[in-house]
Computed example of a mutant assay.
Amino acid sequence: MNYWIGVASKNHVELGVAGGFCQLCHGKSAPLNRMKAGDWLIYYAPKQSLKSKEPCQEFIALGQILPGEAYPFEMAPGFTPDRKDIDFLKNIQSVPLKAVAELPLWQEYRSRLRFGHFQIPEQLFSFIASGMKKEV
């Protein structure tokens, strides 16, 4: 089992959560193909929307990759990104980036946010995920 961070605007992540899919790096298949069934993905949203400068800077979604391959999905004429199915956890709360920014473990990974998708160690995943899970 592997643990991943995906980076996308908040409104795009919300579309994926509602539809049960993940889409990374403007629809490229390579990051999706690196993730296997059972892997976990945390989405980080730097902005509220792709075309906005309004910051979000929070970890906002958490899900486990479902079996199956990446598949193309036509979102608009001439734009067919790849997606992968994912089971997003319900009843979660966002975690601000500043909550993990000072962790020594995070220091190695913070510069990777600009890449859109990267693997993280289980310890870092567990720290972020535990902050996202609401008590029921």
Score class of each variant (00 low, 15 high):
residue 2 N to A: 14
residue 3 Y to Q: 08
residue 3 Y to G: 04
residue 4 W to M: 02
residue 6 G to E: 00
residue 8 A to L: 09
residue 9 S to I: 04
residue 10 K to C: 09
residue 10 K to Y: 14
residue 13 V to Y: 01
residue 13 V to E: 02
residue 14 E to M: 12
residue 14 E to C: 07
residue 15 L to C: 12
residue 16 G to W: 01
residue 16 G to P: 01
residue 17 V to E: 05
residue 17 V to Q: 04
residue 20 G to A: 08
residue 21 F to M: 03
residue 21 F to I: 10
residue 22 C to L: 15
residue 22 C to R: 13
residue 24 L to T: 09
residue 24 L to K: 10
residue 24 L to I: 06
residue 25 C to I: 10
residue 25 C to Y: 08
residue 26 H to E: 10
residue 26 H to Y: 11
residue 26 H to S: 11
residue 28 K to I: 03
residue 28 K to N: 12
residue 29 S to G: 03
residue 30 A to C: 05
residue 31 P to M: 05
residue 31 P to K: 07
residue 33 N to F: 08
residue 34 R to D: 09
residue 37 A to C: 10
residue 38 G to V: 06
residue 38 G to E: 06
residue 39 D to I: 07
residue 40 W to E: 10
residue 41 L to S: 04
residue 43 Y to V: 04
residue 43 Y to Q: 11
residue 45 A to F: 04
residue 45 A to G: 13
residue 47 K to P: 00
residue 48 Q to M: 15
residue 49 S to H: 15
residue 50 L to I: 13
residue 51 K to P: 01
residue 52 S to A: 14
residue 53 K to C: 13
residue 53 K to V: 15
residue 55 P to H: 07
residue 55 P to G: 14
residue 57 Q to Y: 06
residue 57 Q to W: 06
residue 59 F to R: 13
residue 59 F to A: 04
residue 60 I to M: 02
residue 60 I to R: 08
residue 60 I to Y: 03
residue 61 A to N: 03
residue 61 A to Y: 03
residue 62 L to F: 00
residue 63 G to I: 02
residue 63 G to K: 03
residue 64 Q to M: 12
residue 64 Q to F: 06
residue 64 Q to I: 09
residue 65 I to E: 01
residue 66 L to V: 05
residue 67 P to L: 07
residue 68 G to T: 06
residue 68 G to Q: 09
residue 69 E to M: 06
residue 73 F to C: 09
residue 74 E to V: 08
residue 76 A to Q: 14
residue 77 P to C: 03
residue 80 T to I: 13
residue 80 T to E: 08
residue 81 P to I: 00
residue 82 D to K: 12
residue 82 D to P: 02
residue 83 R to C: 08
residue 85 D to S: 11
residue 87 D to L: 08
residue 87 D to R: 15
residue 87 D to M: 12
residue 88 F to L: 01
residue 88 F to D: 00
residue 88 F to K: 03
residue 88 F to T: 01
residue 88 F to E: 00
residue 89 L to A: 09
residue 91 N to H: 15
residue 95 V to H: 01
residue 95 V to Y: 00
residue 96 P to V: 07
residue 97 L to E: 15
residue 97 L to N: 02
residue 97 L to H: 10
residue 98 K to W: 05
residue 100 V to K: 03
residue 102 E to G: 11
residue 102 E to R: 15
residue 103 L to A: 05
residue 104 P to L: 07
residue 104 P to G: 09
residue 104 P to R: 14
residue 104 P to C: 06
residue 104 P to A: 11
residue 105 L to N: 04
residue 106 W to L: 03
residue 107 Q to T: 08
residue 108 E to Q: 14
residue 109 Y to C: 04
residue 111 S to V: 10
residue 112 R to C: 15
residue 113 L to M: 13
residue 114 R to W: 05
residue 115 F to G: 11
residue 116 G to I: 01
residue 118 F to D: 01
residue 120 I to T: 02
residue 120 I to D: 00
residue 120 I to R: 05
residue 123 Q to V: 13
residue 124 L to K: 03
residue 125 F to E: 05
residue 125 F to Q: 00
residue 126 S to D: 14
residue 126 S to W: 04
residue 127 F to C: 10
residue 127 F to H: 15
residue 127 F to Y: 15
residue 128 I to K: 02
residue 129 A to S: 11
residue 132 M to D: 00
residue 132 M to I: 04
residue 133 K to Y: 03
residue 134 K to F: 03
residue 134 K to M: 13
residue 134 K to A: 12
residue 134 K to V: 14
residue 136 V to T: 12
residue 136 V to C: 12
residue 136 V to N: 14
